[in-house]
Design a protein around this nucleic acid. Structure first.
Length: 428
DNA sequence: TCTGGGGTCCTAGGACCC
DNA sequence: TCTGGGGTCCTAGGACCC
């Protein structure tokens, strides 16, 4: 068996680059792409990044800087980005079918099996880069390494340092050179190390990627858990994370959105919730799942701490798991009624589908089973079975012998919900 | 005035069972 | 009345990713 070799292909400033493909005059113009309601900058061009603008900076905070440097802002067009994304994947699949679509702008490729057709991995990387550019117009960087984490790191180097010309293969590099790069790269840049962990690592005098690589995986496991241990092995070139070529079905599906202007009335919230249910249900059906429960949540504006804050959510278990928009909407609106409180300015609403299953008949038959047996001899066994498979929300529903059972949570601030569990009476 | 929208995995502690 | 161990599952919360 050949040792694995991963390539990570990542589009530079993806949304910005998509816009530029269709408007070449924007090339070299400092620009950002804005989130829903034109709230935040969710993509920044190289020029804007160079000005120190962070991801998700609110546009209104950028206006002065924008004036000064001529930054242009575009509203996002996710249909376009989704389409461009699949085009890139199609191009990459021609190099190897062993590909994992990691995000809208990134794919991992297993390249050890196709390497024989090329002079070396770096050559292959450059070919990928050029082909994507020629076919889609999008600029990418390629990172190559013996583990996914190393491929990620290589990609980071390729992006940051012009001498790599967009392709970095850490495996072909002399070890001394690689360690030099690792010494110069902050530990927080490693895939899987965020702000919090980086801070804790600093306390242990681990500042660079190389520092981390040298730390014993066992001691990292003790202090940080298995994820960090695995990560350390990955940095040492021991591949622990495999390519996931088949995209697994989602375990939860969320649809939520901030309002442009705060809303207070039940009718406006209901309209929004209904829209989210419809969107979510569509996603649900597209992956052939049914939801066993749904969560409805509404929130006030956390950026206005002086205004009364309210973050509420309710979980509505469904006795009959469903993907039906009408059924789900009815349940959602009932839930909304439970949590709605007038007198607040709500800024965000959404719906989450959970307890997803692709075999609704199994769950239903178990439920019927319990109902038929009553709360007696065979009950515990049946409940155990349900508990094991579908979680205790469904279990409680079954145990109560009711069709619906509500679980309420409410609180004042996110994310510190002051959780209050109320088993409300059945709503018919 | 205006502040994104999705997701995942892991762990600790409690409930519950035998 | 007090005392037990092993195991599984759940929830909440924390951390991360793009």
């Amino acid at each position: 068996m050949t040792t694995p070799l991963f390539a990570l292909v990542d589009v530079n400033n993806f949304y910005v680059s998509c816009e530029r493909v269709f408007q070449p005059k924007l090339e070299d113009v400092p620009m950002v792409v804005l989130s829903n309601n034109d709230g935040c900058a969710v993509a920044r061009s190289a020029e804007v990044k160079a000005l120190g603008v962070k991801m998700a900076t609110p546009w209104f905070k950028l206006k002065d800087l924008a004036k000064e440097h001529g930054i242009v802002a575009y509203s996002s067009n996710y249909t376009l980005y989704g389409d461009m994304s699949s085009r890139v994947v199609e191009v990459l699949k021609k190099f190897t079918p062993n590909l994992e679509v990691y995000s809208i702008d990134e794919s991992f490729l297993a390249i050890e099996t196709v390497l024989k057709h090329y002079p070396d991995a770096s050559h292959l990387g450059h070919l990928m880069k050029q082909t994507v550019k020629d076919t889609t117009g999008l600029p990418v960087c390629v990172g190559i390494g013996a583990s996914k984490t190393l491929a990620k790191l290589a990609n980071h180097l390729a992006k940051k340092h012009p001498q790599f010309a967009g392709v970095c293969d850490v495996e072909s590099m002399p070890k001394a050179e690689l360690y030099q790069w690792m010494t110069e790269t902050e530990v927080g840049e490693v895939w899987g190390i965020g702000k919090r962990i980086a801070k804790k690592l600093h306390l242990l005098n681990i500042y660079s990627v190389f520092d981390l690589l040298q730390t014993s995986p066992q001691s990292l496991r003790q202090q940080f858990g298995v994820v960090m241990e695995r990560l350390c092995y990955e940095l040492r070139g021991v591949s622990c994370l495999q390519l996931e070529e088949v995209t697994p079905a989602k375990q939860q599906i969320v649809s939520s959105r901030s309002f442009g202007k705060p809303v207070s009335s039940m009718s406006e919230l209901a309209e929004s919730v209904a829209t989210h249910v419809a969107r979510g249900a569509e996603k649900l059906r597209s992956q052939h799942s049914v939801a066993g429960a749904l969560t409805i949540f509404i929130q006030t504006n956390p950026f206005k701490p002086h205004e009364p804050q309210r973050h509420q959510s309710v979980v509505v278990p469904l006795a009959d798991p469903s993907d039906n928009t009408l059924t789900l909407t009815t349940a959602a609106i009932e839930g909304l009624k439970q949590i709605y409180c007038s007198g607040f300015k709500y800024k965000k609403a959404g719906v989450m589908f959970s307890l997803l299953a692709d075999k609704p008949t199994v769950q239903q038959s178990l439920f019927d089973d319990v109902a038929a047996k009553g709360k007696s001899a065979g009950l515990m066994k049946a409940l155990d079975s349900i508990n094991g498979r579908f979680g205790n929300t469904v279990l409680r529903t079954a145990a109560a012998g009711t069709k619906q059972d509500w679980v309420m949570r409410s609180g004042n601030r996110s994310p510190n919900y002051t959780t209050r569990w109320d088993e409300l009476p059945v709503v018919q």
